[in-house]
Amino acid sequence: MNEQGNDIPIIFTAIIAFVLLLAISFLVITFLNQRRKWQLHNEMGKLKEQQQNQLIEAAVRSEESERHRIAETLHDEVGAILSSVRLHFSNINALQLDDKGKKLHEKSKELLDDGIQKVRTISHNLHSTLLKEFGLNEAIRNFLTKTVQGTLVTVETHLDNNYLIENPETDLGVYRIIQELINNILKHAHANFINIESVLKKDELELVLHFNGNGLSQEEFEELRFRPEGLGLKNIQNRMILLKGKIFFEKNKKDNRIILTIPVNPQS
């Protein structure tokens, strides 16, 4: 009995040490399992994001090529037909017409010119050659001037002339976003003053749109872009994802703001 009693502390200490080791191993294995699961989860998330970006890119590319095709058809076919009509029309001797005929001739010529101009504008909006030839700043200025022409909206631009980086993908993305935002401002905000500023920082371009009227807050933007009717906002968000940029909406009574931050790579 005594001999057995002498062994008890040793056996008991061994049991405690073994259980302690077992418990520690159990916790370590659980931790490693969780870490592995976490890594796999992250990898899966990245793959999912990559796949989503590829889908967005494909959608944007197909939209751009479709725009290009429509713009070319409008310019080269519809525009050419209208110009030909205009040429034939101008060959009509208006002097031989009576007063009513003269008036109708003049009105038709006006409408035809208007039509030709509209086709040109739509064609250029769909596919801006100005963007390719003169860069983003000039394309934005030109778009704004043409868009507000004949309206009561005042437009100001303070664009950073240091932005000379030619990255067609980025420029086209930014241009389309600005187009969509300006159209939305004119359509929904009922603004009569728009100001666009751009600042080129170290490796990002910051564009700020100031406007009066009914603005949009960030929360409203987040809510609207998931609605079926918020297609324009969804497109903006998709393009921002592709550009890896950030967009922020600020709603104020007199000065609403939309801030775009787009990373630019000077080497590209």
Partner: peptide, 18 residues
Amino acid sequence: LTLYTAVNFFIFLFYNYL
């Protein structure tokens, strides 16, 4: 708690005996 209970289960179990 896992560490605490796993080891103490044996300590508590044999405490009266010891």
